[in-house]
Simulated scan of single mutants.
Amino acid sequence: MQNAMTGVSRRNQDFLHILQSYVQLTKPRIILLLLITTAGAMWIAAEGQVDPVLLLVTLLSGTFASGSANTINCLYDRDIDDVMERTRDRPLPSGRVSPRDALIFAIALAVASFTLLTVFANLLSACLALSGILVYVVVYTHWLKRHSPQNIVIGGAAGAIPPLVGWAAVTGELSWAAWALFAIICLWTPPHFWALAILIRDDYAKVGVPMMPVVVGNESTSRQIFYYTLSLIPATLLLVYPLHVMGVVYAAIALVLNGIFVQKAWNLMQASSDLQVARSAFKYSIFYMMLLCAGMGIDSLPVTRHLVGAIATQITRLW
């Protein structure tokens, strides 16, 4: 009788295919965005002078922690993944990885993440990374995803923990600026994810997952997307005032990025059933977060602060 492991060996032709299957379990595209927010927080916390070893270890640990959470998510959702068209080829529903091996892999990643952060950073960052796994698995995947249309609003907090990990790794504590970063990610997550949910609304409806577009429709969802994008404007500027950890360069970048995001959300609100408009909003939300974090890094560099200070001095003299 052919068992799950036989299916794995049959479908994975060589070691490279096996490796690709396990990497796919971790959802690397999602991890990349989480690492960018982690790096942005570290850059601010270190005032543009991050220890490269600490940066590497923290990002590697974040990769392991996020990979563990995503693997458990795949393990838990393998029943609906087998039904949804876009996910049925994932390693678990396709039989390329067995549930037992996926669980062992997830545990190993979590242990590696916690150990690395404890040894090379501090216990606070390690505990925060572990809490991110627990929130994503227990609160979002198990409790909310299949039971509440607010699943991504509350459960999305798991995706906002990486900046806290990065900040704690550098400073050993959590300041108001760290929590402002947390708030920015929390507010960004609904418009990002709901734009995607509009695109794959039928898949979610087919498996009974109460994503917002399924429960209240595209029109109501697009309005909420617009409101959340508006809320990002004051949230992102908190880092400039009153927290004073970011300067004029970041402020300018944030205002431009927010303006484009609001325009994308407005367009979606005007044409909530247009999948091309929803796709445009979703893709931009990814670039938005990447560029916002890049702006944090650029603004925090000593050379940027020096240049801005010199320009400000010259302007003052002219007046």
Rank of each mutant, 00 (worst) to 15 (best):
Y140R: 06
V97D: 00
T313K: 13
Y204E: 10
A126E: 10
N73I: 06
S148N: 12
V53Y: 13
A112P: 04
W194I: 03
A108P: 08
N70I: 04
N12I: 07
E219M: 06
D14E: 06
V170A: 03
A251V: 01
R100N: 09
V277L: 04
W319I: 12
P302A: 03
P149I: 05
I200C: 08
S21A: 15
I80G: 02
I36C: 07
T118V: 14
I107W: 01
S175V: 12
P213C: 08
L257S: 01
L128W: 08
T221M: 05
R305V: 13
L19E: 11
C127T: 13
G40T: 00
Q270S: 04
R29D: 07
K264A: 04
C127Y: 10
A168C: 10
I133M: 04
N151R: 08
T58V: 12
V215I: 14
F64W: 10
H306D: 14
G95L: 05
N73W: 08
A197S: 15
V119W: 15
I30E: 05
P163I: 01
L301M: 14
A39H: 04
V97Y: 01
R29C: 04
S220W: 07
L54K: 13
V135E: 05
Y284S: 01
A271N: 14
R88K: 15
G62S: 03
Q49N: 11
A129S: 15
M212A: 12
M84L: 10
T304Y: 01
G208V: 06
G297V: 13
V262A: 02
W167K: 08
H142E: 07
N70R: 04
M290H: 01
S220K: 14
L164C: 08
I104A: 15
Q24I: 09
C186E: 06
A4G: 12
G159D: 09
F261K: 00
L35K: 03
M42E: 03
V57S: 06
R223F: 10
L268S: 01
L237A: 03
K283H: 09
P163G: 08
G67P: 07
L33M: 07
A65N: 00
L292E: 03
A254Q: 02
P191Q: 11
H147K: 11
R11Y: 12
A254T: 02
I225L: 05
S9L: 15
K206N: 14
T37E: 06
V57Y: 11
A235P: 04
T58Y: 07
D299Y: 04
L130I: 12
L92H: 09
G247H: 05
Y204F: 14
S113A: 15
W319M: 13
V23H: 09
A168F: 05
G309H: 06
T115I: 15
L238I: 09
H17A: 15
A126V: 11
G156M: 11
Y22V: 13
L75Y: 12
F105I: 11
W266H: 03
L232H: 01
V308D: 07
P149K: 10
T71S: 14
A252V: 12
Y136A: 07
S94T: 11
G40E: 01
A252W: 05
M42G: 03
I260V: 14
A157H: 09
